[in-house]
Design a protein around this nucleic acid. Structure first.
Lengths: 315, 315
DNA sequence: GTAAAGTATGAAATGCGTTTCAGAACAAGC
DNA sequence: GCTTGTTCTGAAACGCATTTCATACTTTAC
């Protein structure tokens, strides 16, 4: 298995001409093109992509930082990214971080080392400043509200989404509204806190449950909810999986939904339809696709994707 | 930002010595090591990883072929792979194929082009022979029973798992057992067909539902089940998501589980616990981890991971 | 004191494709 | 017939780190 020079020798042309043929460039005579193709065939030539990456200074590969690949929330975004990447002929290097900063940094370094042309951060633990330090090394897109930053972003307006969900519940006569978040000190948590304050005044909500990501978390939180003496009459839940766990555990404990507690999830994952769970639909796949388009674009942009409240039977 | 030669010049040493320092090789004097590090600092040196890949002839990257990243079944396996990869300092290049052969081939070509050192095929559409053609280009591991092949494999014994689930249902007095599969002509489908024949004789099961992967599929199949005049008294379902859709739709239609139909899912995803759904636990994450160990190993192996029936309230 | 073993270092080869630049060859335009 | 514009082509530079080989200098070992 030879290289480009072996082919050149065999075909009686220069390496430059071989390169032209291999990349379908014009200005190569029919005879030489033919000779090169035959020589390549004969030598079972295969391009060494690493040499191409070195010579061209780019890899047509985008890195993706995300905490968990097995959770559908992240999976859906990743899927949107993957679909767009495929269309553009790009590869995807993924980094499952478990929200571990060390691993996030390792992923950022791929950008510095030119292993990837750009980076999409689906969710992160490390401070934004750290990421900004790498902005000179390549394009970076974050999946969170970042208006004004020098990094591109695509996001759901968490504040508005939560706000309008709160309004909806209030209209339904709910006054004691609790909610869950993934991380106590996250972007999304702050947005929720603010929206809550805006609706209910300065006193912070005292029915906030954190560490809510999976079905089990929902089950656990339902137990906590049930044990409260001043139970909230409704809960806005991180995502449909947590909501599913919550809903099913409540039922198991003998409570009725929405009789004893109203529930609203997020994402509109198919499980929510099956459970007749009201939810806020988020176009996660589309969000991923947009993120990918942004990472290829030379200009910084901030794009908001819409959300939509889907009413079912849990309120 | 210079390269290794600039550093060599500035530090008054050779490029070889710089390389030695950068890779923590021994046999470099304290003074020169110091001088190199200072020069590197001064020039803001960053290794060009593509040059390393070219020079070393490998990339410390493993490719992963899977049809859908957003489904937890594949996500869990991927997560196990990712965890193992992280421990060994490897990167992961993923290829979401949608079971599209063209894309599977594209992924296989990454091996040929030396873009990845090995390949893990979580699930595939293309014929095995096609994959075997690439075995000379690097290590390949498939997540399916492949005893005797020249490619490594890690798998759940689908035949036995299905067989013992059938036995279990029979012991419970079930005689009309239906089941669902993802693809009509898949490895797993054949194993199920065989196990069924073994239990019930040559006549093929006439309650087989295919295209069963998601919650919606479960909902759809429940509808079909309900519309049958000769409904089976129990169903073994592809995975817990499909089972969840099936179970919830049955309830919605006024049937009771297990009164009207017994249900057994696969995977033991948390949703099954929340639904009190009996299921066959599969150690998917572990399977992924093993696949990764195999792809790094120089010898071909075939490893079976255990399954375990978890009894809950759906039988 | 001499052989053997270990430490330290650089030149040069290696991995390989891309791209620029200069020039040649030939066709078309006036 | 001469200028201008196209089409072709190859030499050489470029991207960059790794690794082998030969050599020289130190230490131990006996």
């Amino acid at each position: 298995m030879g290289n480009i020079h072996d082919i050149a020798r065999l075909a009686g042309v220069s390496a430059a001409t071989v390169s032209r043929v291999m990349n379908d460039y014009p200005y190569v005579s029919k005879e030489k093109r033919q000779a090169v193709l035959e020589a390549a065939e004969q030598l079972h030539y295969e391009k060494n992509i690493n040499a191409v990456h070195l010579a061209r200074g780019k890899t047509e590969t985008i890195g993706v930082i995300l905490p968990f690949v097995s959770h559908p929330y992240f999976g859906m975004i990743l899927s949107g990214i993957a679909e767009a990447a495929e269309k553009r002929g790009y590869k995807l290097l993924i980094m499952q971080t478990n929200y571990n900063v060390i691993q996030e940094i390792e992923a950022l370094n791929m950008l510095k080392l030119k292993q990837v042309d750009g980076l999409i951060v689906i969710s992160r633990e490390c401070p934004l400043e750290l990421i900004e330090d790498y902005s000179g090394c390549g394009r970076i897109v974050l999946c969170e509200a970042l208006a004004g930053s020098s990094l591109s972003s695509v996001f759901v307006n968490q504040y508005e989404a939560f706000q309008s969900t709160l309004s909806f519940l209030k209209e339904k006569g709910k006054t004691r509204i609790g909610y869950s978040v993934l991380r106590k000190e996250g972007k999304s948590s702050n947005a929720r806190k603010k929206a809550y304050e805006q609706q209910f005044g300065k006193a912070p909500c005292h029915w906030v449950f954190d560490q809510a990501l999976t079905v089990e978390d929902g089950t656990r939180i339902a137990g906590k909810w049930a044990a409260l003496s001043d139970r909230p009459d409704s809960m806005i839940i991180t995502n449909d999986f947590v909501a599913a766990g919550f809903l099913l555990e409540c039922r198991r404990l003998g409570f009725s939904i929405p009789g004893d507690v109203s529930l609203i999830g997020f994402d509109n994952h198919p499980i929510s339809a099956a459970l007749s769970l009201s939810t806020v639909e988020l176009p996660l796949q589309q969000l991923g696709t947009i993120a990918f388009e942004q990472v290829l674009s030379s200009k910084v942009s901030h794009k908001e994707v819409p959300f939509q409240l889907i009413e079912r039977g849990s309120v």
